[in-house]
Computed example of a mutant assay.
Amino acid sequence: MMRIFLFLATNLAIILVASVTLSLLGLGGIHDGQGGMNLPALLVFCAIIGFAGSFISLFMSKWLAKRGTGTRIIEKPQNRQEQWLMDTVAELAREAGIGMPEVGIFPSRASNAFATGWNRNNSLVAVSDGMLQRFSPQEVRAVMAHEIGHVANGDMVTLTLIQGVVNTFVMFFARIIGNFVDRAVFKNDSGRPGLGYFIATIFAEIILGILAMIIVMWFSRQREFRADAAAAQLTGAGGMIAALERLRAEQGIPVEMPGELKAFGINANMKNGLAGLLMSHPPLEQRIEALRRGSFR
């Protein structure tokens, strides 16, 4: 129930902000009353909604991550393992030149970890208890370095901006297509959008959204190579290769991460072919080979 409430409240807030901003800019409706569209107003409207959604998600990312994964933040280490984890993250963060992140452990038998947060000095890194149980300290340290690399590289903000741009153009072109179909196919000459407009816009958003997701996921995969490179610089390539080899050996274990956090984890169930275009992570074999060649893209 709370999840539905937050979803509706967030979308209502976006709509209100978009309406107020359009009024302040003196822009009228996106339809000109004669069957055409006010393209400047439409572009601004789409940009506001597209970027607002992305940035709201970014600013709420830590809150959502903690609740979505059941992450327990280590406020005061309760045992030697937690103390070691805190000390390791503190050392890596200092070497990477970022503020000390919050450190957490989330319940999952799968070996995984993630980083999120809206800036370099206000982030969260977390590791699954399954990874802590099965990985060696050297491998866990390399994984933490990978996540610190995401934070230091500003990957969360970069993906937010990319997502905002693609959101904007998906909405923009979907509405242009919807207006064209409404007039040309449904023969709507009323000057106002009809049923055909809304139906065509929805279908266009679905198709364009899939194409846009391919672009976003390509950037996400390149970001993984950069985070691996950061880990290699912080801990040595050997530790990162060993961690990835261990992940490859455990690929049969499902990756239990909420959909919105998969792009921020170190591990994801990779696929080949067309489905691979929609994966947030490149195949482990490619990442291992890049580290061995020293070519981190």
Rank of each mutant, 00 (worst) to 15 (best):
E91L: 10
G99K: 01
V89D: 08
A152C: 03
G104C: 02
G50C: 01
Q138K: 07
N122G: 03
G53Y: 00
P77K: 07
P137M: 02
E139S: 06
T69H: 13
L43H: 01
T116C: 14
I56T: 02
A90D: 08
A90L: 15
L43C: 05
R72A: 13
I105G: 14
T69K: 04
R94Y: 15
T116P: 07
G117I: 14
A96I: 03
V140D: 05
M100R: 15
Q138I: 12
E95S: 15
N79G: 12
V89H: 09
E75Y: 09
K76N: 08
V125A: 05
R134H: 11
R120P: 07
K76F: 14
D155H: 06
E91D: 14
K66V: 09
L85P: 11
F106Y: 12
G97T: 05
A47E: 02
E95A: 09
I162W: 14
N112L: 04
Q83I: 13
M156Q: 05
Q138H: 10
L42W: 06
L43M: 13
R94G: 07
A110Q: 03
N119A: 07
K66L: 13
L43N: 07
L124G: 02
A90Q: 11
L85H: 11
D87T: 12
Q81D: 06
A142Y: 06
L58H: 00
F51G: 03
A52I: 00
F51Q: 01
F55R: 04
F135N: 07
R67E: 11
V127W: 02
P101W: 02
V89G: 06
D155S: 05
V103L: 04
E82P: 04
M156N: 07
P101C: 12
